[in-house]
Write a protein that binds this DNA or RNA. Structure first.
Length: 820
RNA sequence: GCGCUUGUGGCGGAAUUGGUAGACGCUGCAGACUUAAAAUCUGUUGGCCGCAAGGCCGUGCCGGUUCAAGUCCGGCCUAGCGCACCA
């Protein structure tokens, strides 16, 4: 029998225990026909309490997952930890506690706290990237990639963070500063490991359009890959000794070739010293040395001043044989294109600026298509060609293909594309990460560790304070090993991998997390993936989300996967800011601790509040005004049920007219709540639930009540409530004489007939302004409606002439009038 | 500099994609219950004019398209994000 319920944190505990005992949310591995892989980005095991961001990231998608579960889906909803990385190591440096120890402890605390959300997580599938059983396979992937030539080592100028004492990937440098600590990053030439993500540039780009991802994220990723169509053009350069050397330049404006007035090499270009004349050598070397000292940041600041030096050499324009001077200038960057550029000052701002500074000729070869009027230089738009011999009059588009075709005939040009995307630098001079499974043997050189010897274990007792050199180097027992090929003495690679490597494939491991003899069972993973719904922050648009796509494609090409994309549908949760509107941070002291709220109100109130108070994908500043309102809403629900059980039951068979409102309200609620949850619009879904609550209250005030109908509506009510307040709904379900669990119930379906109204409210507009409205029968014809509207709006029509009427079905009639 | 996104009551936020702006809730105000308070319930709550009926104004600003604009177009302002010598 129903006893009065008072929802509190005790009810959370009761049901969390029962659900765990029954393993209620168990994933059924046997039948994957309706599997649904719902995944939130895993979190970093930080020491402090679970913060608001975690709650927001996990609780709301759990509402979606529960909804899907009740709609018959076999929901797979795993949870794990991205445990390697800088924060644990920095914490260790500060406190002296080894990262291993603090991380394990944090994982334990966080797991307990995550359980307090009362989510449908499948904990038996958990993983942790710093476990040997996990990173063994991270290393295994590295070795597979190495064998395919996708992991390679090279000397390259890399981004160095002097504070973190490590190199960074391009993706981790933001405005010339370290993404992590904000320190100015500078370039350093080092020998490092890279993943050849550029091999997949085109496919990564092409695949984006097919994804159900936020448009903005797709755009960010497209821009990051940065495809640019153009042509490679070869220039012969005459050296001082009389020989010539040929260099290729990439350009998107081959049409401007006749306006060429010089060519430029970047200071880092390997052929600079080969080309330079003796008379200019000293000056050029000095220039290169200076250019090397400038950091990324300074380069950006000095973006207006374009410096450079002449090499003494001349290049031949392949289209007309004209000789142009060869310069070295740091406005040409070595890492994009070929590091060698053709300069057309009349039609490029940078070249124009440079030419003016150095008194180089400026030849106009493009003019406006529409007017032959004088155009101001530099003219960078498209147009038509002038001063270009036989190409005169062609549009720029046509000229590009014509000119490149002509060049191609003499082997001097071809159409091609360039990408902005660089290979992914994965070496880190840090301790707390996956060791790179490579050994260096004096005889055999660089040798990948064979699969049978994996994992290369991360040693425990290492001095991990960063010195700028890899901490593992100081650990002899780690470093000294034997060569897997010849058995002779060898040294291990001392760097560890970027933590983004760990997170690039974790979603592939969850469904088969205990597999000890292979990375995962192919059949199983191909049946379980792709992830159907992925939820996480937008800040990963050019990092994790790109890397994970890359790994998926690599593993597919290695024969392990039969799909191309890991995450079909992606949602970004908004960011919850501090009450001051600034990003929450401990240093600013504007963090919010969910625990206080949970202890006071219970986790369901907290969950429903964060779902109700924000638009999920937008987020916003935190404020707890309103959480009382949600708590009150819970009380109102409790009272609603108490009131129902106190009613004298009056039963009758014929549903009178006044039951219609309730039936409508129920179906309206089911319809809209379902649609809104599906779209992650939890705030409006909850609003509709509140409306349904009000409708039930209204009904209970009536003189005559159809008890069976009301009971049915209340049962439905509990189901609709359950994804938003799982513990509370489960308690109500039990108290209203049902067998648990409410989560085994089928989500209600909509009776479309109940949503058809027999009356409609038509708005009357006069000249587009709302004047009045009238309630009428839905079956009336347009003509009848207009008549009714005109007669009911008589007072607005005095001395007016009706010009036309517009009828919007079921909604409004606009009467357009003029003065008589 | 280029590209994208945002701007709605005192507050959080709605608005079926061009069709009654402000759903739902918070706050405030008034009332009921109470010795009183809390809790609960009932009304009310964009601004201005009006006793009222009613009217005028109103979705960052200026203009436009349309019978009709928060929604579409052009320009500007604001806040935020992405890229930034990409040839």
């Amino acid at each position: 029998m129903f006893t009065k319920i008072k929802y509190s944190v005790d009810i959370d505990k009761k049901w969390q225990k029962k659900w765990a005992e029954q393993n209620l949310y168990r994933f059924n591995e046997k039948d994957l026909s309706k599997k649904l892989y719902c995944l939130e980005m895993f979190s970093y095991p930080s020491g402090a309490n679970l913060h608001l961001g975690h709650w927001y990231n996990y609780a709301a998608p759990d509402t979606w997952a529960r909804f899907k579960r009740m709609n018959g889906y076999n929901v797979f909803h795993p949870q794990g930890f991205d445990a390697f990385g800088l924060p644990a190591e920095n914490y260790a440096i500060k406190t002296g506690v080894p990262p291993e120890k603090s991380t394990r402890k944090n994982i334990q605390t966080m797991t307990e706290q995550l359980k307090r959300i009362g989510a449908t997580f499948n904990w038996e599938y958990t993983l942790n990237t710093c476990d040997e059983e996990y990173y063994k396979w991270t290393q295994w992937i590295f070795v597979q990639m190495y064998k395919k030539g996708l992991a390679y080592r090279k000397d390259a100028p890399v981004n160095w963070c002097p504070k973190c004492n490590t190199v960074l990937a391009n993706e981790q440098v933001v405005n010339g500063k370290c993404d992590r600590c904000g320190t100015d990053v500078y370039q350093k030439k080092m020998n490092q490991w890279f993943f050849k993500i550029t091999d997949y540039a085109e496919e990564l780009l092409q695949g984006i359009d097919k994804l159900d991802w936020p448009e903005k994220t797709k755009k960010i990723q497209k821009n990051w890959i940065g495809k640019s169509n153009g042509a490679l053009i070869s220039f012969d350069i005459e050296k001082e000794d009389g020989t010539t050397i040929t260099l290729e330049a990439f350009t998107s404006r081959a049409d401007t070739l006749c306006g060429l007035s010089y060519v430029v090499l970047s200071p880092e270009h390997e052929k600079v010293l080969d080309i330079v004349y003796n008379s200019h050598k000293e000056e050029v070397i000095k220039y290169i040395e200076n250019a090397g000292k400038i950091t990324e940041l300074e380069r950006m600041l000095n973006e207006r001043k374009r410096t450079g030096v002449f090499t003494g050499a001349y290049a031949i324009n392949p289209i007309n044989g004209k000789k142009v001077p060869v310069w070295v200038a740091d406005y040409v960057i070595a890492s994009y294109g070929t590091g060698f550029v053709m300069a057309v000052p009349a039609h490029d701002e940078r070249d124009f600026d440079f030419a003016q500074n150095h008194n180089l000729p400026i030849l106009q070869v493009i003019t406006d298509t529409k007017s032959d009027k004088f155009v101001t230089l530099p003219f960078c738009n498209h147009g038509k060609l002038v001063n270009s011999g036989k190409y005169n009059g062609l549009t720029t588009e046509a000229a590009i293909t014509t000119i490149v075709k002509d060049l191609e005939k003499v082997g001097k040009g071809k159409l091609t594309s360039m990408y902005r995307l660089r290979d992914w630098l994965i070496s880190r001079q840090r301790y707390w990460g996956t060791p790179i499974p490579i050994v260096y043997c004096e005889k055999c050189g660089e040798v990948p560790v064979p699969e049978s010897q994996l994992p290369v274990k991360l040693p425990k007792n290492v001095e991990f304070t960063p010195t700028g050199d890899s901490p593992l180097k100081s650990c002899d027992e780690f470093m000294n090993t034997t060569c897997p090929i010849c058995g002779g003495a060898a040294r291990r690679e001392a760097d560890t991998m970027d933590t983004f490597v760990d997170s690039s494939w974790y979603f592939l491991r969850y469904p088969d997390n205990k597999n000890s003899h292979e990375i995962f069972n192919k059949e199983k993973i191909n049946a379980m993936l792709p992830v159907d719904k992925y939820i996480g922050g937008q800040e990963h648009a050019t990092m994790h989300l790109l890397y994970a796509r890359f790994f998926t494609k690599v593993l597919r090409d290695l024969g392990y996967l039969n799909f191309d994309e890991p995450f079909l549908s992606l949602i970004h949760q908004g960011l919850i800011l501090g009450p001051d509107g600034a990003k929450m941070s401990k240093s600013k002291g504007n963090t919010i601790c969910p625990d206080d709220y949970i202890n006071k109100y219970g986790s369901d109130v907290f969950r429903m509040y964060i779902e109700f108070a924000f638009s999920y994908v937008t987020g916003g500043p935190w404020s707890d005004t309103g959480i009382e309102g949600v708590a009150k809403f819970f009380t109102r629900i409790e009272k609603m049920f108490a009131e129902f059980y106190s009613l004298v039951s009056i039963k009758y068979d014929i549903i009178p007219q006044f039951d219609k409102d309730l039936v409508y309200a129920k179906n309206f609620a089911v319809d809209n709540i379902s649609k809104d949850i599906e779209k992650f619009q939890f705030n409006t879904a909850i609003a509709r639930l509140m409306e349904y609550t009000n409708a039930i209250y209204d009904y209970m005030k009536k003189e005559k009540i159809n008890y069976a109908l009301l009971k049915d509506c209340l049962d439905c009510y509990i189901i609709l409530l359950s994804p938003f307040a799982p513990h509370f709904a489960e308690e109500l379900w039990e108290q209203t004489d049902h067998t648990i669990s409410v989560f085994n119930e089928k989500w209600p379906s909509v009776d479309e007939k109940a949503l058809v109204k027999d009356k409609m409210n038509i708005t009357i507009q006069i000249n587009g302004k709302v004047r009045s409205n009238f309630l009428t029968d839905v079956n009336l014809s347009e003509a009848e409606l207009i008549n009714e509207a005109v007669s009911s709006a008589q007072k607005y029509l005095i001395n007016k002439k009706i010009i036309r009427t517009i009828y919007v079905p079921q909604k409004l009639i606009n009467i357009v009038v003029s003065d008589n």
